[in-house]
Design a protein around this nucleic acid. Structure first.
Lengths: 145, 145
DNA sequence: CTTAATGCAAAGTATTTGCAGATTT
DNA sequence: AAATCTGCAAATACTTTGCATTAAG
């Protein structure tokens, strides 16, 4: 965890961005709430706790920088806002989204090799990343019906 | 094509919605521009051509109805707006999105059976639909580098 | 004739931007 | 010291809503 944190700070510095306490606080907030798919307001609320006069615009701007540095990934769960995830390369995963309760479940298995091989060959498309969302009903909602 | 159109009108009627000329015009606009991933403004512009005093709000409201009836699907290509596609059940496809030029390419092969079977069994999740976006570089952008 | 749909304008959200002052390097 | 970053408020973009009027069934 600490290692990831310092890796991110280094990336920020390397690219010529300044290491401000606000930026550090945003990075920490995201790391501390991994797998929670926070949106900007939520990250802002967390950071504001320890850093009461940070502005929402600073959080927006920091997230743009982190996205540009490939540190985080934007996620869209169709709930009207952008949510963020840490980008740990060797940790590919997909999302199951319950159409009834909205819960998001992470699936750690990848299993997209076949389709990716086909795409690269047939479409001459150089794959960088992918994003798979599966919609349906979670166990809980199925049971309580 | 005509068959799909009347199927959609029937669905609208069946659910108790009124068949207004505005709704028909929106449906036609989408059908006439299939695979073009239009957003609301674009649909509005097309409809306005033949129906100059339609309001943007009517288009938004019609799209909400069509989405609810499962006639169209919302798509998010990370360009800041929601885009729509006709929902032809037996025509599953994925999208390749070029990180360089933004072009969206449709992939007609499905190839998600393995992963779906695994998800249904291991996560006890009843799958309704899925959405796969693959990011990378299209042939054109690779060639011109 | 009843009920729902439309068009307009106003109101909401989510996000971005301009700018003066503060902070990092 | 130079350049970037911050916080604030205003601006923008997309979408939804209230309401009086119109139109569909």
């Amino acid at each position: 965890m600490n290692e990831i944190y310092y890796d991110i700070l280094n990336k920020v510095k390397e690219k010529g961005y300044k290491l401000t306490p606000q930026r550090k606080a945003v990075v920490l907030a995201i790391l501390d709430h991994d797998h929670m798919h926070l949106n900007t307001e939520e990250i802002y609320a967390i950071v504001k706790d320890q850093y009461p006069n940070i502005g929402l615009a600073t959080v927006y701007r920091t997230l743009i920088v982190l996205d540009e540095l490939n540190v985080i990934t934007k996620m869209n769960f169709d709930d009207g806002c952008v949510r963020y995830e840490i980008n740990s390369e060797n940790h590919q995963h997909h999302h199951l989204i319950c159409r009834n309760c909205g819960k998001v479940i992470e699936v750690m298995e990848d299993l997209l090799d076949d389709i990716e091989a086909m795409v690269e060959e047939k479409y001459q498309f150089k794959i960088i990343d992918h994003n798979l969302k599966i919609y349906g009903l979670c166990k809980n909602c199925l049971d309580n019906q």
